[in-house]
Design a protein around this nucleic acid. Structure first.
Lengths: 167, 167
DNA sequence: ACAAACTTTCATTTTTTTTTGAAACTTTAA
DNA sequence: TTAAAGTTTCAAAAAAAAATGAAAGTTTGT
């Protein structure tokens, strides 16, 4: 396989994977492109390589920076801005976990707590509802905490986790 | 909060969470509804409660059964089919993990392996590409294996994991 | 073997999400 | 202070995903 072909395949695959996990395709593709680029890339080049509009590039770069996984860089003597991706995978996974926890899990937990604490009048339906949502709340909270704990190791957390669970 | 209100809120929230993670809203809502129902529910009732069409209900119930997290039930003396959700959360998480690994992670790994093994001609760009995709392959493979290992405990795996990583 | 009761399929429509592109805005250098 | 070089915003358009509903299919009781 040619380098260019391989790069394109990687970008497409990463984009598809993003879609399946609720991240928009272009955002994932830009991220993929920056991940495998050995030097900072301009917006111009991103537009060109992915065949997307300026607006689309701008918005998704902003989103990636909000996630904390893409950085702006300034080159000496250059007017335009360049972009790089977080390339350390442990760090990348930590940042994605933290963001998704903050944006999606925590708000869901809040609702779970609310609905699991209604006063049940004691019909079987209500008792089951309270019981099940309480269990769900406990489960999600525990999972969220575990994720937090794991990624706290920061440096090489995945390798450390492997060691922990194998023994 | 009223029971009915709480139930509705839960279903809506679970549906929104599903969307954010790449699962279609209705599919997540049906799952939510079945999770908190103390007895099997007919397609008729699902349509009524979620205000969706027969076709939609049918297709998403099929999808949920393909995932192995919703079951068909037959009631004695009843022509129609009823549906229940897997209510054990450890089991639910295991099934979702396995399916997503099989459908999404494994195929992505295959591509990562392909693109990371091109013969680099030694330009800096190519060396970086091979290096980065190799690291990504190793990382994703390791993460996938960890998930597999964790969920192998099956019974109460989350609680067991908590114990493991805390000490 | 028939028809009633029920479920599935899939072409079409609707809704939602993403993308575009042009105008507004910002920054820098002369 | 101006204009050139660049970036951001957002209303409108396009694309993608999901939902509808009617026809086809299946099952069961008589």
């Amino acid at each position: 396989m040619e380098f260019k072909e391989a790069k394109n395949k990687f970008v497409q695959t990463w984009g598809a994977l993003g879609s399946q996990w609720g991240i928009n395709k272009t955002m994932a593709q830009i991220h993929a492109l920056l991940m495998v680029s050995h030097e900072p890339v301009s917006m111009e080049d991103i537009m060109e390589e992915l065949q997307i509009s300026r607006g689309n590039a701008s918005m998704n770069l902003r989103a990636l920076m909000d996630w904390g996984i893409v950085y702006k860089e300034y080159k000496a003597g250059e007017r335009r801005e360049f972009f790089t991706a977080e390339k350390d995978l442990d760090e990348l996974a930590v940042k994605i976990s933290r963001e998704r926890s903050k944006r999606e899990i925590k708000p869901a937990l809040k609702v779970l707590k609310e609905v699991s604490t209604i006063k049940s009048d004691g019909t079987e339906a209500e008792r089951h509802f309270v019981d099940q949502t309480t269990k769900l709340y406990d489960f999600v909270l525990k999972a969220d905490n575990v994720l937090d704990k794991i990624t706290e190791y920061k440096d090489n957390w995945l390798a450390k986790l492997v060691v922990k669970i194998m023994k």
